[in-house]
Simulated assay, not measured.
Amino acid sequence: MGQQFNDVSELVTDQGFLDWSQGAVTAESAIFREWLENDLAHHAMALEGKKLVESIVLQEKPLPEGQLEAALKRLAASINTQQHQAPVISIGRAVKRWWWAAAMFVLLAGAGLFISKMKHQPVQSGIAAGYGELLEHELPDGSMVTLNANSRIHISEGFENKKEREVWLTGEAFFHVKKTTDHKRFVVHTDRFDIVVTGTQFNVVNRGDKTNVLLTEGSVFLKMQDGRELKMVPGDFVELTGANDPSRKHVAAEKVLAWKDRKLVFENTPLHEAVQQIMDQYGVKILIPDQQLADTAQVSGIVPSDNLDLLLTLLEEGNGLKARKENGVLVIEKKSR
Rank of each mutant, 00 (worst) to 15 (best):
M1P: 10
N6A: 12
D7V: 01
V8Y: 06
G16E: 08
G23A: 10
S29C: 12
S29P: 12
A30F: 12
I31S: 14
R33V: 14
L36W: 09
N38W: 05
N38T: 10
N38K: 12
N38F: 02
D39R: 06
H43Q: 13
A46R: 06
K50N: 09
K51L: 08
V53I: 11
L58H: 03
Q59L: 15
E60Q: 15
K61I: 00
P62G: 12
L68P: 05
E69R: 15
A71L: 10
A77R: 13
S78C: 10
N80I: 03
H84S: 08
Q85G: 01
V88N: 14
S90H: 06
R97P: 01
R97V: 02
W100A: 14
W100E: 11
A101C: 05
L108G: 11
A109S: 15
G110S: 13
L113Y: 13
S116P: 12
S116I: 09
K117P: 14
H120N: 15
V123M: 14
I127S: 03
Y131L: 11
Y131W: 14
E133D: 15
E133I: 01
E133R: 13
D141A: 11
G142Q: 11
S143K: 04
N150C: 08
R165M: 10
W168K: 06
L169G: 06
A173K: 00
F175D: 02
H176N: 11
K179T: 15
T180P: 02
T180G: 03
H183N: 13
K184R: 15
K184M: 07
R192S: 14
R192P: 05
T200R: 07
T200V: 09
V204F: 06
R207Q: 10
D209C: 03
N212P: 05
L214A: 02
S219W: 00
L222C: 00
R228T: 03
L230G: 00
L230Q: 04
G235V: 02
F237R: 06
V238G: 06
V238F: 07
G242K: 08
A243E: 04
D245C: 04
P246H: 05
R248V: 10
V251H: 03
E254M: 00
K260Y: 03
R262V: 00
R262A: 01
V265S: 00
E267P: 04
E267V: 09
P270C: 05
P270V: 10
L271M: 08
L271V: 07
L271Y: 05
E273P: 03
E273R: 07
V275C: 01
V275Q: 09
M279W: 00
Y282R: 00
G283D: 07
Q291M: 08
Q292L: 02
A297P: 01
I302W: 02
D309E: 15
L312T: 10
E317Y: 04
K322T: 14
A323T: 01
E326M: 00
N327M: 13
N327D: 15
V329C: 06
L330G: 02
V331D: 04
I332A: 01
I332S: 01
R337W: 11
